[in-house]
Design a binder for these strands. Structure first.
Lengths: 223, 223
DNA sequence: AATCTTTGTATGCGGTGCTTACATTCACGA
DNA sequence: TCGTGAATGTAAGCACCGCATACAAAGATT
């Protein structure tokens, strides 16, 4: 199949050549982007190597030059998604002063929930542990450990300032994590209709349960 | 392929005939059982129609006489699993008197968590909303609605007896659900190693966070 | 300019869910 | 009692998937 008028390829790598060149340019990046898009459209399960290749305009085997397996692609996708997730959390934390750790804790939880509500499929890829092997993704694990450490310090600060009722911080942290993770997953897994929570109510409900939790762990002046 | 000595089939339906008869007997039941077993071994995703058929000693197309799709099979599997789930909860509730609704609430949460810890794959099939369409499974939905109603009444009773701090029962209920669901899913999704929770600690941790939550919503005599 | 490495294509294997056409057995009614 | 139709199995094949191998094209290096 002779390609129409092979354009002799300019020496410098100028990607403006109209008939698509043999080499893609940055296929790796494009594949990750396509996978993110696929996930956003049809859920995390809808991501397939072949379809990502199709969208990149490339043969079904090409992606395997960049990712040895589907899981490897998903790991890269998870890395990109987690980066965005962390960025949102950092932005939210930047608006709350260090002097009020409990407020920071709340802001963190809120940012977590908001991002998870808006990017359910991406959140699932990051957290479900079904799309890549966490042990192999050192960056992701380290990043996640940092987040855990941040929460730990925040809670410790809050307790030191007398904002918390109980000193069992690990228990508080795990419970808090379970709460937000559970709410995020209830959204992903389609539980909200069964609970009479409309789509536009999800944000308010998220805030409500987070506040309930915080009221539960906070020191209260009177009964 | 002449089957060895076709045994003339006794008139009455006696399944003791050793060379396997053309008709299976109760393929539907056996397929559900095989699927439950497959899920228990390799997670919910490991369930395939072909493998279930293989284990039932039947051709790959045979299951489709009983289930129009894989999802239909999974719906039946979910029905069976949910029945067992509800049985465990009912058993736990039977041991706590009606006079202490908050204790009943706790027992319910504990039974929920225990079953989810012991049957992660089955729990996932029931609750993930990825293996069957909930709208089509009227029995499951009704059953689930009953459970929600039970929790609602329990909380209302607790509030009436002055056991609760807040009267916003819907919020309490959703938060409680998110908590236990999140913890159960953290187990399924492999989050516990990252949180330093060993397998034999999961039960104790589950109890701990449930108690933290209950302490948070309970009326306390002194600050 | 020649060669090596990278990155694409072509092709094919085994797995999956699902469909259609056909075979066998059961159950019911004349 | 015996046909006949309904129920339930098999066989074969489709499209899709992840993935491996062999080959071709383009860049990079010397």
């Amino acid at each position: 199949m002779p390609v129409a008028a092979k354009p002799k390829r300019r020496p410098a790598k100028n990607p403006a050549a109209s008939p698509k060149p043999y080499h893609h340019g940055d296929l790796r990046r494009v594949l990750i982007e396509a996978a993110l898009q696929l996930a956003g459209e049809g859920g995390a399960e809808a991501v397939s190597v072949r379809e990502a290749a199709r969208r990149a305009g490339v043969s079904p085997g090409a992606p395997f030059r960049h990712f040895p397996s589907r899981d490897a692609l998903m790991t890269a996708v998870a890395g990109e998604a987690q980066q965005r997730f962390r960025a949102e959390i950092s932005a939210a934390l930047a608006e709350v002063p260090d002097s009020d750790p409990l407020a920071r804790f709340r802001a963190l939880g809120l940012a977590y929930l908001r991002w998870a509500m808006r990017n359910p499929a991406h959140f699932e890829i990051i957290s479900s542990g079904r799309y890549f092997v966490h042990d192999k993704a050192a960056d992701l694990s380290r990043d996640n450990a940092e987040l855990i450490g941040l929460v730990e310090r925040t809670l410790a600060d809050a307790f030191a300032l007398g904002q918390l009722r109980s000193g069992d911080l690990k228990r508080v942290q795990i419970a808090g994590r379970a709460l937000v993770y559970g709410f995020a997953r209830m959204n992903i897994d389609g539980h909200f209709p069964r609970w009479g929570i409309a789509e536009d109510e999800a944000g308010a409900t998220a805030e409500a349960i987070l506040d309930l939790f915080i009221e539960g762990i906070a020191r209260r002046p009177n009964g």
